[in-house]
Design a protein around this nucleic acid. Sequence first.
DNA 1: TTGATATCATTTGCATACGAATGAATTTGG
DNA 2: CCAAATTCATTCGTATGCAAATGATATCAA
Lengths: 151, 151
Amino acid sequence: MSGGELKLVEAEEPDDHDYRLQEQVGFILRKAHQRHVSIFASQIGDLTPPQFAALAKLHDVGETSQNQLGTLIAMDAATVKGVIDRLKARGLVDLTKHEVDKRRLLVNLTPEGREAIERLIPLARAITQETLAPLTAKEAATFMRLLAKLA
Amino acid sequence: MSGGELKLVEAEEPDDHDYRLQEQVGFILRKAHQRHVSIFASQIGDLTPPQFAALAKLHDVGETSQNQLGTLIAMDAATVKGVIDRLKARGLVDLTKHEVDKRRLLVNLTPEGREAIERLIPLARAITQETLAPLTAKEAATFMRLLAKLA
DNA sequence: TTGATATCATTTGCATACGAATGAATTTGG
DNA sequence: CCAAATTCATTCGTATGCAAATGATATCAA
């Protein structure tokens, strides 16, 4: 009887005690991202991951508008503007107005920007490898597949 | 012969063309994190994930120093200070000086902070579920195991 | 004990990141 | 054709996130 009551109390108890921050996907995702950024910085000190992403995508697709570039690298308009401004200040991209659609700002790699991204791509491969280093090759493949489903 | 030469050229060619930003772990990790933060904001609009993490950890361990709390929730000293300052401004935590070690700043939940975190924990569970929703239960378990190894 | 070290917190500077508001230019629908 | 809606870019405000420098306090070691 008293056992039954105890069970009932336990069942009704809001299991706040069971909430473990360290096991929540958001918390671990944030830490994994932090670790990656740290690895990135150790290999490529003078460019941030978003800056690298912008250069890599420009290298890939060529001239695009600032907003379109933002879409391609998953940055909103306000964020991409800051990134591009800083790349421009360093002479890695240049900006021209679109002749026909005067709203658009076209972004291009400069020769220096092209040289930089081509030089850095091998390092980026190493960064990817180091980030995935705690996993076996098979685990890494599984992880990438599942991560892609989440993103 | 010309076939052999061609093969040689291909083998030596730096495969920059093969670099796909969208397939790099860092890029997808950043996108997955963005998605999670967006889900979090849709469920808990008036608190950020770092603010929630601070409250949840305080609820878990009770009084701690600001730096210690930062360690527990993976934030450096400068970042945790900003988070705690904003929680204090909203009356969710209060700060007292450590009696013995005058360097330390002790952080505590206020009654309002305790009420808030206990009210939000069920929502946080829903956020975790929604974040993992693209995966089956088995996939989610695998993903969490591998993600933990990376973080 | 005291001088060197280490720890805790703060501050500054820089770089994402995003919501919201704004203005300019384009496209669409009636 | 023209008013309404949309798109592109910018700006502002707020919130992480981290490196580096600084000041105060505590601890360690000679």
